[in-house]
Structure formats: structure tokens, C-alpha cells
């Protein structure tokens, strides 16, 4: 168990700048999720923590001790890989015992830990099987077991659920999270799935283009994003952005409709509005915008509308009966306090 500090870490691949001055503090026992689009550098950051990538600058420290110069073997970190990386020629038991044997643990201690992990993960009946004879979910559990038995400084997860089907993925999220809570081991979890990030992380770091955009609890990121990238990445369906020109609290859309914004701004802005904050029925204090429906999908439990506003597509989640049809003009309503305002530089105006 350890806290991990990442200070100004840089990584170059040739001239490609993969990590740009990344700093992040992970508290002891915390479940930190690194989320971002593919190629954003989140996996590189994770692998740097593991020691599988050399960093070009900065410091990575565990419990205030720099580990930059330690090889992966010396860092006592366990990792769950995307494709599990189970040793195919070894049985489940041997997979779990591999690292313990290398570290020359007593046989009784190895057996104790394997039994503990197998009980916890429901693998007891499969200990003598080879990975090939296991289902995806079972392999996933073995990979976690292999990380667990070592009682490492930290768990690293590299998109571990991406090869599972949707139902199993949801199940495993809870399982991983419960396990980590029980063991209280610091965990760093990489995913590109923001729902996974929101449901699993104590805190989330949103990574983009080799840098961290924002760190915070899931709710902080949802309610109070620092910029358009975070606002657009966190939340499902994604936030709608409407471009406008602002003068104080007044913002004028391209077609001349006027919206009152909760903060003062000047010049070109983007107004962010989450689909779940738009209503088709007017309530008190609500503002109204006119737009045209382009299409809708009936998902059974809810309706997904797409409206056209000056060429921008606005997504709205609603319930109840279908209200409109393609091409019909319609009014949408929202609480102006739910609006987020972003400047031309995509930064939030508060």
C-alpha cells in the first residue's frame, strides 16, 4: 500500500511528445481512474508507473521514494493486462504462484495466499486448469488473483474489461471495485470508457493529448468541468454545445435567439447543456429555445431526440410519448443555471 506521486513526467517517442509534464498524486488506498480517448497517453502513463516504459523527464515516486531507476522487477507492482497475459503453459495455480515462487516464499505461505485468492475470486474449482480452458470472465479473475497474491504496492489495470461482453463487464466492474475496497490496495485503472470511469473511480483523471485535463471525483467532473474536453467526455449521452456571442449575461445565438447565461462573458462562446437537463415541458424559471426536430429513436424506456439548432445537433433524453416528428419545429426548455459557458479557448468561464 502506497501513495504514488507523478511529478512533471515527460515521455518522448523520438520527436513525438507522448506525455507532457504530467503531474498526479494518488492517495494511499485510492482507486484512481485514468480515462481518455485512445492514443491520449493514459496507457503510457500507466506503463511508466509500472516501469515498463522509461520516462524522458520528471519523477515517479512511491511513498515519497523516487522509483525512476527501479526496473519493473524491483517495483513490487502488479498489473492486470488487457489480454490478461496469463502464462498459457501454466495451470491457474502455477500462474498464481509464479511470482511467489520467484520471490522464494515458503510453500505453506504460497498455499495460504492462493487459497485465499481462489476463495475470494471463486476460482477454487479451476486451480488445476490451464488458461485456455477458462472463460473470459474466469481468465479475468485469474489475472486479478495473480495480482492479489503478491500483496503489491499498487494494482495497475490496463483496460482489463475491454475483451468481455457488455453484461460481464458491468459485473466485473463491481467485483474489481469490491475487491480493491476489501484489500485497500492503491489502484490505478486505465479505461477509455467514461461510464466505467464514473462507476469505478474514487477519483478520475481525464487524459488528453499527453496531458491531464482535470482530476476530481466523478461528480466534480460531471458538475464542474474545467473545459469543453472534460465536459464533452464525461457524461452520457455527451453534452451539447451551442455557439453564441456573449455580452455580459446575454448571449445571442446565430439565428438571433437570446439566452441568459449564468456568468458574465464577452465575445465568442460555447454554451454547454447536458441532454438530461433539457425538457420538452416548460417549468417555472425555465428558458426556452426554438429548434427543429431532425430525428428521434424510441428506446422503449426513454426517447432520444435530435434537434437542429443553427446546424448544430442537440441531443435530448426524454420520457413519455413521442411529441414531434422529423421537420417539426419544437420548443425546448432548460434551467439557465444548468448552462456551462466556455470561452473561445475552450476553457470554462466561471
Amino acid at each position: 500500500m502506497a501513495k504514488i506521486d507523478i511529478i512533471n513526467v515527460q515521455k518522448y517517442y523520438g520527436s513525438y511528445h507522448a506525455l507532457r509534464e504530467v503531474s498526479l498524486s494518488i492517495k494511499e488506498g485510492e482507486f484512481m481512474v485514468l480515462v481518455g480517448p485512445s492514443g491520449c497517453g493514459k496507457s503510457t502513463l500507466l506503463r511508466s508507473i509500472a516501469g515498463l516504459e522509461d520516462i524522458s523527464g520528471g519523477v515517479i515516486a512511491a511513498n515519497d521514494q523516487p522509483v525512476n531507476d527501479l526496473s519493473p522487477q524491483e517495483r513490487n507492482i502488479a498489473m492486470v493486462f488487457q489480454n490478461y497475459a496469463l502464462y498459457p503453459h501454466l495451470t491457474v495455480r502455477e500462474n498464481l504462484a509464479f511470482s511467489l515462487k520467484i520471490h522464494k516464499f515458503e510453500k505453506s505461505e504460497i498455499d495460504r495466499r492462493i487459497k485465499l485468492a481462489a476463495d475470494m475470486l471463486g476460482l477454487t474449482d479451476y486451480l488445476s486448469r490451464r488458461p485456455k480452458a477458462l472463460s473470459g470472465g474466469q481468465r479475468q479473475r485469474v489475472a486479478m488473483g495473480r495480482a492479489m497474491v503478491r500483496e503489491p504496492t499498487a494494482f495497475l489495470f490496463d483496460e482489463p474489461l475491454s475483451n468481455l461482453d457488455a453484461r460481464l463487464r458491468v459485473e466485473m466492474r463491481t467485483e474489481i471495485r469490491n475487491l480493491q475496497r476489501k484489500l485497500r490496495t492503491t489502484a490505478v485503472y486505465v479505461t477509455h470508457d467514461q461510464v466505467e470511469a464514473m462507476t469505478m473511480g474514487d477519483r478520475i483523471a481525464v487524459v488528453n493529448k499527453g496531458g491531464i485535463e482535470q482530476v476530481g471525483t466523478p461528480l466534480e467532473l460531471y458538475r464542474d468541468p474545467n473545459n469543453m474536453f472534460v465536459a464533452g467526455f464525461i457524461g452520457s449521452p455527451p453534452m451539447n454545445f451551442i455557439s453564441a456571442r456573449a455580452d455580459g449575461h446575454q448571449a445571442v445565438l446565430e439565428d438571433g435567439q437570446v439566452v441568459t447565461i449564468p456568468v458574465k462573458a464577452h465575445g465568442d462562446i460555447s454554451i454547454g447543456l447536458r441532454p438530461e437537463h433539457i425538457f420538452l415541458d416548460k417549468l417555472e424559471h425555465h428558458h426556452t429555445l426554438k429548434c427543429k426536430e431532425s430525428r428521434h429513436f424510441d428506446l422503449g424506456s426513454s426517447l432520444q431526440y435530435f434537434f437542429d439548432l443553427n446546424g448544430t445537433e442537440i441531443e435530448v433524453s426524454a420520457s413519455g410519448d413521442v411529441r414531434s416528428h422529423s421537420g417539426v419545429e419544437i420548443q425546448i426548455h432548460f434551467d439557465p443555471n444548468d448552462l456551462l459557458v466556455f470561452g473561445a479557448d475552450t476553457k470554462r468561464i466561471r
Partner: peptide, 13 residues
């Protein structure tokens, strides 16, 4: 897979 080597390194091998 390279990940197998990496897993072994992290396991201390």
C-alpha cells in the same frame, strides 16, 4: 505476446 514478458517482469522475474 509482449505482455507475457511484461507480466513476468512485474512478477519479479
Amino acid at each position: 505476446p509482449k505482455a507475457l514478458d511484461e507480466a513476468a517482469w512485474l512478477d519479479g522475474a
